[in-house]
Design a protein around this nucleic acid. Sequence first.
DNA 1: GCGACAG
DNA 2: ATCTTGTCGC
Length: 330
Amino acid sequence: MSHPQQFLNPDLQIPDLRAEVISLLQQIPTGSISTFGSLARALGDIKAAKWIGTLLKHDPDRDFWPWHRIVMQNLQLPLTSGVVSSSQQELLHAEGVTIQSGRIDPITPIFDEFHSNKPLHKLQIQQRDISERILLTSEFKATKSVAGIDIAYPQPGIARAAYVEWNLVNSCFDYELAIETPIIFPYITGYLTYRELPAYMVLLKAVQAERNLAEILLVDGSGILHPRKCGIACHLGVLLNHPTIGVSKKILTGKVDLTNQESNEIPILDAQNKAMGIAMRKTKHNKLVYASPGHQFSLQKIPDLLNLCWFDHRLPEPIYLADKLSKQYK
DNA sequence: GCGACAG
DNA sequence: ATCTTGTCGC
C-alpha cells in the first residue's frame, strides 16, 4: 500500500483538520463553553459543523482533549443515541458549569475568540484559483476511449479507488485497475477533492505505468456544478491537464427546471440562471444523474458523450463498472 | 416548518 | 460513503 502524499502535486496542499480542531478546543478556557458552529467558522466554513460533531462523538482519543466544552447553539447538550451523555455532564460539572435538564446555565461564558489560520478558507482560495484555470472547450471530434473512476471505503481510513476503461469504437470493456490507500481528510460538503483526490492520483499513476489514460475521465462527483465552480472533476482535470466530466447521483448545487419533467436532459442553472450542468437519465424510468464539465470538455457535448456509453444501468457504463469494482473487496 | 443536500 | 434483512415492485 503506497502513501498518497508522495505523489501529490504542490498545487494540492491538504491540512490536518483533526489537529486543527484539537488546537482550537484547547483554546477554550476551563469553565467556558463553545458551539459546533463557532468551531466550524474558526476552521473557515460553517459546513464543517456536522463533521466536528462526529469527530467529537467518535474519536477514540477524544478524552485527551476538552471535547465536552462544545454544545449546541441553543445551549443544549448534543445527544448520544437519543440521550445526553452523562460523561459530558460530569466533565462540565467538574469545571463549574451547571446544567439543568440537558441545558447549559445561560450565565456560562461562551468562548468565540479562536486563534485560527482558517484552513478551510485557504482551501476555498485554492479552489477559486483552480477554477480560473478550467477550460470548457472540447478538443475531440471522435472519442475512442472513456474511463470511469470511483472510490469505496472497505474500512474507515482506507480508500479503494477503481478505474474502468470503456472502448467507444467497439463498445466494450477494455481495462480495469483498483488500488488501496490510506485516507485522512474527512468528508465535508464542498471539499470532496481534499478527501478523494490523493487516492485518485495514486490510482492514475498506477494506470499510467501500464498504458495511456483514456481520452476522457468520468469522475464520481461534481464538475463546475459546485459552490466555487470547482468540484473534484475540475480539480483533477486541471492538475492532470486532462479532460474530465463530473457525474453524481445527487445534486450538490443549482436548480433543475421542474417544468421540463418530460425531458431526459434538463439543464441545471446556477444563481445567475446560467447552465452549469445537465440532469440526465437513460430512460424516463431511471432516476436522474447530474453531470457537469470538469476540464477541457464543454457542457453541450456531455449528453452525446454519455449516451455513447450508457446502457442498462442508472449510471453510464464506465462509471457504473468503476463503482462496482471499487466495492469488490469482500 | 424550512433549507441544506457531491462522497 | 457506510451500517444492514428481508421485502416490495417490475
